[in-house]
Design a protein around this nucleic acid. Structure first.
Lengths: 137, 137
DNA sequence: TATTGTTATACTCTATAACTATA
DNA sequence: TATAGTTATAGAGTATAACAATA
């Protein structure tokens, strides 16, 4: 088996395994009720902030309406702050609050642990190769 | 950026891109209303049939109750058949029907096209490497 | 006792379109 | 005219537990 579409099945399966691992140890996300997607938004924002929403949307390849909702939830929980952009009145810049920053540390720990379990069969070099390939798509 | 958890974000984003590409050209799945997941189940089953449900569940890293439902839908649409296993009365063997086989060809074509678009920046060798790495996890 | 598969239920995520306000 | 973001709504996917039948 090595047809093009297999790549899609492999990626899907891999993500499902990561999600499952995250889920079993994600007491944090459960208690705060932000969901796995909320956790990923925080992790992504951490690497981009301050960032306008459309940039986060592009980075995560999601729909903007979906992002509006999850951001609203995270803001309600006090993890994200929205500021008006000085350059463009339409734009709202997103950044993590202090509680959000502390929370994302916990999320990152869980995510790292899950990734370590799922990718245990791969050497550190393999993982670097994998990440580099995915970063290019 | 090259921390362990980034791998999860990269895989998530890649899968989302594939899904989006599939979605824009998936007239077939839409008209038959089986959803992207239904399409992936058919593709996976094609490579395993005849297979018991728990094997499909393991391969796709999904929940068994979820599989029960999607299989029921696909059976109702006449794409999958369930037979009793001769070895174990608890087990039901799944296989594609003739219409299901024709349908999976169309799904595969869409999926292949989507993968080709998303992985366009990668050479064939890169894709082989990527698939090999993912297959090992 | 453990496994295969089903049912029921609640929740999260996704897709679409119509909308506003700014550019 | 086009872009940033919001709202509303319908649909698809996921997690859990309790269950029947068989091993």
């Amino acid at each position: 088996m090595s047809e093009p579409h297999d790549l899609a099945l492999l990626i899907d399966r891999t993500l499902r395994r990561i999600s499952a691992e995250v889920h079993t140890r994600a007491v944090i996300m459960d208690t705060e009720r932000i969901g796995p997607f909320g956790g990923m938004v925080l992790l992504t924002l951490e690497e981009m902030e301050p960032a306008p929403m459309h940039q986060l949307v592009a980075q995560m390849a999601r729909d903007k309406s979906q992002m509006t909702r999850v951001i609203a939830t995270l803001e309600r929980k006090g993890m994200i702050a929205r500021h008006a952009s000085p350059d463009d009145a339409r734009v709202r810049l997103l950044s993590l609050t202090e509680p959000g920053r502390a929370f994302v540390d916990a999320v990152r720990a869980v995510m790292t642990e899950a990734v370590d379990v799922v990718f245990a069969p791969l050497t550190p070099e393999d993982r670097t190769t994998l990440a580099a390939l995915l970063r290019r798509v």
